[in-house]
Design a protein around this nucleic acid. Structure first.
Lengths: 320, 320
DNA sequence: TTATATTTTATACACTTTTGAAAAATATGA
DNA sequence: TCATATTTTTCAAAAGTGTATAAAATATAA
């Protein structure tokens, strides 16, 4: 059983309050006792119980990151950004999966939270957000005085990408979308469609395909294109995985990339570089890092203003 | 501010104890009140506060996963295995990074923990393990009645790999090791060295290179080999990342893989398949899944017996 | 003695579960 | 039908946790 402040006090021959005073850096403790207490704490690697502390203070310095999508390696960098940023700021991080998040968010063990979970509804977030529990939400926009949004600025970079493809002379486009309900996907597609229109290029709606961000859906879409004999000149994909799936399908059928069809992705994950995929690089680490900064400001009492928009950049590689 | 059991009781026109009874499925509550209470809970999506509950019960059903290494995508599958397995068992999961783990492990908010963090010392784990907090440790072996180890059975598969390389006629071997202090690395190297000896092949100790599991160290080692004009016939690497780094260096210098030098990895991560790397496939998802099963048994009171050893298999691809 | 430095005692903190008893509802027997 | 026994339903009060802090007490120095 873990030692408590009383045990430490007993060992040090002082009262619990003295131990508390020493540990919390108050100056009302004699130098000698201070040292003794500290030494005994170190020996028994004692740290104040988080629950007891929370009980008394009613707050904590733990930040929760709500996340469940352990399928997508893409998010690892985000976590790393959050983790680094928090430890620089002296806050603790726990990652809560869908089951645990409800429990922990309700308690005041958590001082604030960053949410990146498409399964969590806007309503739920609105219902838990408060000055005692400010939220930063990634990849979606929520309006609430205690909720700040951090999103990728998909639109301009996608416009730029498509514009440059037009400039290269491509005329026949295909598009594989991601999960339709996500903000990212709708913005990417709007940008795509708008830019084609701006270039007076008609876009056959049958060339829009609905994927789910997974490699398989890209593969399947490409299969459909191949079998339907309607492979476009360039296939724009809403993320890398789907692009990679498509490329696989093309290669299997002897259709060469980029000679017969150009392909672009979005995300610039680990595989993109390895496979020479032209894509859009997303500042994932920065997204996590920034989310923390924004959250700390909310905790400090700042009102949540406009969403933060992150800029992305095109990486031209061999698939175009 | 979040509602408490008293608020719910007030709304339902009953006492807190009745609400508690209903929520905990005791039969001492009238059907009508039961329904009313349940409905009001649902309306306000009330769940009992985790701290209050813990305070009274002295235990919880939250499992902590101690993990910090968000650099390596390799581990994602492990997390997924843990997450899936826990939610099947009705336990909650929180992932604690180095800072938060100390706090949470000390409290009795956590019923058990799985540890996969090379920075955590054996001593620390020994000091916190107890019947109230059993541990499962991955990738290392710790002897303690409340600590179960789950490790990869590196030795036989590495023997097999090297033996088959010998059978193919390779004679001049190189080896890039990972972090020397890890069990994985020492086992992989022992197997490597033992098998060479068994085949009466001398191994020049200068052909052992110390890496750190990262791509860069593989790259640098290969550079050294190239510049020293001592590229072996086959380079065995303790993981994929280093193998990939090495391959990059070789290709940059016009040394062809596998024509001029064969390369093998270990892990079978995402990149290995994409780059056609011969490697050893590691059951990561299974490792996580099994770790949970073992932990639940410890919680149930089973004593921690022998370490669990996971079998790995060779995947022959284009780099040999 | 007075002022200052150090230490301790006693209490508050929040939320739930549980216990044992009371109240209400239902059953039993005359 | 009424009185009593039994069961069901409900509640008030207590218990459980480890820490921080204000106020009181003691020791030390001037």
């Amino acid at each position: 059983m873990a030692l408590g402040i009383k045990d430490i006090a007993l060992m040090a021959g002082v009262s619990p309050s003295t131990v508390s005073n020493v540990l919390n850096g108050r100056k009302n403790a004699g130098e000698k006792t201070r040292e003794r207490v500290l030494e005994i704490c170190a020996q028994n690697n004692y740290t104040p119980d988080i629950i007891g502390k929370n009980l008394k203070l009613g707050t904590s310095n733990t930040i929760a990151f709500n996340f469940s999508d352990f399928d997508r390696a893409f998010y690892l960098e985000v976590i790393k950004g959050i983790s680094d940023s928090l430890s620089e700021s002296g806050y603790d991080l726990i990652i809560c999966t869908n089951t645990s998040s409800v429990n922990f968010m309700r308690s005041n063990l958590v001082r604030g939270a960053i949410c990146l979970d498409s399964k969590m509804t806007d309503e739920y977030m609105l219902s838990i957000a408060s000055p005692k529990l400010p939220l930063v939400v990634l990849d979606r926009v929520i309006k609430h005085p205690n909720v700040k949004s951090v999103v990728l600025d998909n639109y301009p970079v996608m416009c730029q990408l498509v514009q440059q493809l037009c400039d290269k002379g491509f005329k026949k486009f295909g598009f594989i979308g991601g999960i339709a309900s996500t903000l990212d996907n709708s913005e990417r597609f709007s940008a795509f469609a708008d830019t084609l229109e701006k270039n007076s290029l008609s876009f056959d709606k049958r060339m829009y395909f609905n994927g789910d961000y997974r490699e398989k859906s890209g593969y399947q879409t490409a299969r459909i294109l191949i079998l339907g004999n309607s492979v476009p000149e360039v296939l724009v994909c809403a993320n890398d995985s789907m692009a990679i799936g498509a490329i696989k399908a093309f290669r299997e059928s002897g259709i060469e990339v980029p000679k017969d069809v150009a392909v672009t992705g979005f995300d610039d994950g680990e595989l993109a570089a390895a496979l020479e995929l032209t894509t859009v690089t997303v500042p994932r680490y920065e997204a996590g890092y920034l989310a923390v900064k924004e959250l700390l400001e909310l905790i400090q009492g700042a009102p949540a203003a406009q969403p933060v928009k992150l800029r992305a950049e095109i990486v031209w590689r061999g698939t175009v």
